[in-house]
Amino acid sequence: MLSLIKNKFLRIPEKLHILIIAVIVMPLFIGAAIFFSGHFMTSYKIAFITDQAVSIPENEAMRINKMNEAPTASSLAMGEYNAFVETNKNGEFTVTTLNDESDKKAIQTFFETGKLPEINKTEQRGTGTNILGFVLVVALMQGVALTTFYPDDRNNATFKRILTSPAESKQYLAAQGIFTFIGLYVPTFTAIAITKIIFGAEIGFGLGTLAILLVILTSLATAFSLFMASIMNRNISLATSGISIVTCIMAGCFFSFTGDSEVLDVISNILPQKAFMAMSQTVENGASFQEFAGALSYIFLWIIVLGVAGNVVTKRKIKKGVY
C-alpha cells in the first residue's frame, strides 16, 4: 500500500502542469474568490434620468448618477446599473430594473420617501457556506485531474501488471484515493487558512471547523473522481467537469434558491452537495451536532457508495479482461 502511494508521489514531476493547477492555481482562485466575495457591493447603482433640478436623497446603499438621457438597456443587462429611475412632470417616479419586485419597490420607496425600507429577503446564506460551495465545485472538478494516474496506468498496462502482484485492485484504488485526497485537501485548506490569517478575510468558520468540513468535502470529491475514473475510459475530465457543474448548480453551490419545480427539488435533494451545503449552513449558524447528523450521515453514505461502486466496476472490468 505504501509502495503504491509512494509511486504516485514519485511520478509527480512528470505531471507538474496538472499539479501546478491543482496545488497552486486553484488555491489562488479560491483565495481570490474569498477576497472578492468580501468586497461584493450590496449597494444599488441607479441612473436617475431627469432634466429638472430635483434634490436626491442620500444613502450609502444607493449610488445615484444623475443624467439627462437614459443609458442603454444593455447597461442594465451588463450590471453597470441596477435600475433606471425616471421622473415625470407630476413628480412621479418610474423604476426600470432587471431585479426582482422587492428591489424595485425598495428603490421606488427610496425615491418617493427618501428612506430605504427594510428588505425582507429570504434568509441569506453565510459567507463560510458560500465559500465552501465554491470550493466544492472546484474540488469536484479538480479531483479527477489528481486521479489521472489511475487511467494512465490502465492505458499503459501498468495497472494490469500491478494486479499480477499481491496488490489488489481495492488497495490500488485506496492508494489513489489517499493521493487524490491529500492533493485536494492540503492546498485548499492552506489557501483558505492563509486568506483568513494573513489577509484577514471573513470565512465564517473557525479553522478547526473548516478543517473538519474540508475533510468531508474532499472525501466526497475523492470518491466521485475515483468513481468517474473507474466507469469511464476516455474524456473523464470533460465528463466530470460537466456533471460537477450541473449538479452543483442544482444543489445550490453557486446560488441559494427556492424553486417551484418539484422534479428539480427531488433531484437536487438526492445530491450529496445539497446535503453538504445544508450541513455547512447549519454548522455556520452554530447548531448542535444533532441538527446536522442526518446530513452528515447522508454525505458519508454517498462517499461509501461512490467508493464501493468504483471498486465494483473496476473488479468487473478486470473479470472481463478489461484493465
Binding site: 509502495s3 512528470e14 500491478i162
Partner: peptide
C-alpha cells in the same frame, strides 16, 4: 507482459523497486 508496462516518468531503478516492493 506483452505490453511494455513500466512507468516512463520514474527511473529504471525506481520502477524495479516499486514492483518488487509490492511483494513486501
Amino acid at each position: 507482459p506483452q505490453d511494455i508496462a513500466i512507468f516512463e516518468e520514474i527511473t529504471a531503478e525506481q520502477n524495479v523497486r516499486f514492483f518488487a516492493g509490492l511483494y513486501g
